[in-house]
Simulated assay, not measured.
Amino acid sequence: MKILVPDVPFDLDFPSLLPDGGASFAPGGTDTVVAYAMNEPVPEEHTDAEVLVTWSSPPKVLADAARRMPRLRWVQTLSAGPDVALRAGFGPEVVISSGQSLHDDTVTEHALALILATVRRIDFSLAAQREHHWAKEIAFAQADPGTEREYTLDGARVTVWGFGSIALRLSPLLTALGAQVTGVASRAGERSGYPVVGPDGLDALLAETDLLVSLLPAVPATRHILDARLLSLLPTSARFVNVGRGATVDEAALVDALRSGRLAGAALDVMETEPLPANSPLWDVPNLILTPHVAGGRPRGAARFLADQLTSWRAGEPLRNVTPR
């Protein structure tokens, strides 16, 4: 079986994790592991591969692979979200699985950084710094009984939308800072001690939310799911942080909510179009923090994860993180 792995700037010593260096992984068969340039089309001599591992490949490269790799049966992306692979046009016989869990720690760290930055008004302080302005008004606002609770997570009502593995890493950190965390997922219930509401409970929950954190994936059902109607349900003092996918947000509605003051602030690591075009209104919206899709960083533990996935594939056992299609 031929397996294509990306030529990546981190340790992906995949063959060494397989028995005999990958020479005879299964009885009666052999594995050939080939590295390819992830930003370039798969070379013609390797279009016969059955397994394609991807990470940060441009959409056009994956679309090209979907057209030119007739023997492909499995695409494993090392990204937390499989959205680029899902849009590439792979046939229904091709299994697509994501790298969910490989980015949990770094996304959690970045989400917490953005949350604290917007709650503590770090963007305002940085803007004041560039103007050589000593922004004492922040301190006055924190001392004002009418606005003091808007500057802290202590007692804040935090809604985490998309309550998966990253949410389970992030929520205890928010709890430690005094926040009251409620999750939103496809099914209501309780997860690791946190209450989780289903879609039918979202409207009522948003009306009582101080901070909304989105960890949603980009799938057809979530496109622009945070729209003008849902944004209008949030209190005007609420803030929004997105470290999921940009396509889940109606950006025009978000811009309008921030400019009109119907939303106090936001912080985004992901946008619908990336890189963000120079003429995007997001660049100049007040009370908005932008970072260039850097929350995930490199996948951590990718080599062991891939070896475990291949072991399952060879044995006919279920793979982790398979995306329904």
Rank of each mutant, 00 (worst) to 15 (best):
Y194C: 06
Y194Q: 08
W313C: 01
F124S: 14
T77L: 05
A139T: 15
G246R: 07
P27M: 03
W74V: 05
A218H: 14
A35I: 11
L276C: 05
V184I: 13
L205P: 10
G29K: 15
P195K: 01
S16T: 13
A228H: 11
W283A: 00
L78Y: 02
T106K: 14
N321D: 08
S312G: 10
S214N: 12
L310H: 14
L18C: 02
S312A: 15
V255A: 12
V160E: 06
V241H: 01
G244R: 04
T77V: 02
L114K: 04
A185I: 11
L258P: 07
A63V: 10
T32I: 14
G193M: 06
G178P: 07
P145A: 04
R67N: 11
V34H: 14
K2L: 08
Q76E: 02
E109M: 11
D144G: 05
T118E: 12
V107W: 09
V181L: 07
A307W: 02
T147G: 08
V184R: 01
L230M: 12
R259A: 07
W74P: 06
I115R: 02
F240E: 04
Y151H: 14
A65V: 06
T222I: 01
R229Y: 13
W313G: 04
G164P: 10
D64N: 15
I225M: 12
E208D: 15
P217M: 01
E137R: 11
G244P: 05
N39A: 15
S101E: 15
A238R: 03
V294M: 14
I138T: 12
P318K: 03
T236E: 14
L102E: 04
L4C: 03
D11L: 12
A80C: 03
Q309Y: 00
R262I: 04
P92M: 09
D210M: 05
D31F: 14
L234Q: 02
V34R: 11
L215R: 04
A302L: 08
V8G: 07
L258K: 01
R229W: 14
A204E: 15
A23V: 09
T248Q: 05
P324Q: 10
T118F: 09
G99N: 04
S165N: 10
T248A: 08
D269E: 03
D256F: 07
W313D: 06
G183K: 05
L216Y: 02
D154M: 12
G89K: 02
A253T: 04
E190H: 09
A238Q: 00
R304E: 15
F90V: 02
L212K: 00
A63D: 09
S97I: 04
P275E: 00
H132A: 15
V181K: 09
